[in-house]
Computed example of a mutant assay.
Amino acid sequence: MDTPTALGEFLRTRRAQLQPEDVGLPSHGTRRRVPGLRREELALLAGVSITYYTHLEQGQSTNASDSVLDALARALRLTPDEHAHLLNLARPPRAKRAPSPRPEYARATTRRLIAAMPQVPAVVLDGRNNVLAWNPLGHALLAGHVDPASPDDPAVRPNLTRMLFLDPHTRELYTDWKSEARVALAALRLVAGRNPQDRALAELIGSLMLQSPDFASLWSKHPVRDCTVGTKNLHHPVVGPLTLDFENLHLTDGTNHRMLLYSAPESSPSDAALRMLSSLTAGPAAAPGHDAPKPASADADAGGER
């Protein structure tokens, strides 16, 4: 992930979304060569010189002050998530040789916890959306066509973002796939901005750019949005339509892992459908209370990189 390039792309996409009249500037009624605000118009709104702004957009300046970045965020009418993303892109960490990522594994305590919630679909994810563990209902809800033991093997471990764009079964699961894809990619953009040195994340994004035209098209628009809670509309191949609330609960153990949990209002049709799916689910995806098999060098408790 080339952070200076990403910063320029982000600023250009946000300029293109605003017209002069949107921000109180005259349009003069002339035909514009580029969509949205010109560089000089944005520089005027933010109170910086056109030369300085051009250098910033071209990645030639990496020392923009908080006041300048805040002024640009106001001028571009950025959301709080987009403002935070702008700061991440403009203040990349000092480049350093990143070590090869070690395989990550869900903690034994986390695996026990999701196994103890048989009526709640639960999935444990790392920061790249790799599935580290799931309980039987979580597996049946999101990926019943996938080997339930696959999260235990990093070589074949499912990745929810990759499945969303490349797996036809997952694509058919979402009632409004386009909306789901936009939200997922916007959240991935935010993660990428926070972790520009993550080589495995960059490889995931690069492979999706090559394999999925839909991903490449959406990525070029530079959407940014955090997505920790919300509602998903699914059409499950076994139990039919589902409207489920979801929450991403980030663990505080330093692993950057999170639990993705789904629920439905009590006595609702979706609650009944989840209960039916639970009754059809047989056997745990992995023995509760035990870590998945892993190399002897992996951390026996948390596993993987921190």
Rank of each mutant, 00 (worst) to 15 (best):
H236Y: 03
N129S: 12
L37T: 10
A116P: 02
A46G: 08
R97W: 10
R94C: 05
D291I: 12
D167V: 11
P35C: 05
E9T: 06
Y52N: 05
H85I: 09
W177Y: 15
L142W: 06
L86I: 13
F246G: 03
A149E: 12
A296C: 07
L142Q: 13
P99F: 12
G138D: 04
A98Y: 02
L173Y: 09
G303P: 01
L37I: 15
V229W: 04
D245H: 07
R33N: 15
H145M: 03
L188M: 12
E57L: 01
N248M: 09
H28W: 11
A108E: 02
Y174T: 11
S297Q: 04
D253S: 11
P223N: 02
A106G: 05
V123W: 03
S150D: 11
P26Y: 06
P158W: 05
A298E: 10
A90T: 08
P101R: 13
D226P: 03
N129Y: 14
E9R: 07
S100I: 12
L210G: 02
H28S: 12
L280H: 14
A122F: 05
M117K: 11
A116E: 08
Y262S: 03
P213C: 11
D2K: 00
R12Q: 12
A122V: 07
A200P: 05
N159R: 00
D126Y: 02
S270Y: 05
L280K: 15
G144A: 09
A71N: 08
R112Q: 12
E180R: 15
P26K: 09
P4D: 12
L190D: 15
G36T: 14
R194W: 01
S65A: 02
D22V: 13
S179T: 15
V156L: 06
A143E: 07
T3Q: 08
K178L: 13
R306P: 01
M1F: 01
L69N: 00
L37Q: 09
L69I: 02
T175G: 09
K96N: 00
A302S: 01
P151N: 10
Q211M: 10
A187P: 02
H236F: 03
L137F: 02
A285I: 10
T228H: 13
R258Q: 13
D126C: 02
L260F: 14
P93F: 08
A298D: 14
S270N: 04
G36R: 06
V183A: 09
V146N: 10
S27G: 15
P92Q: 10
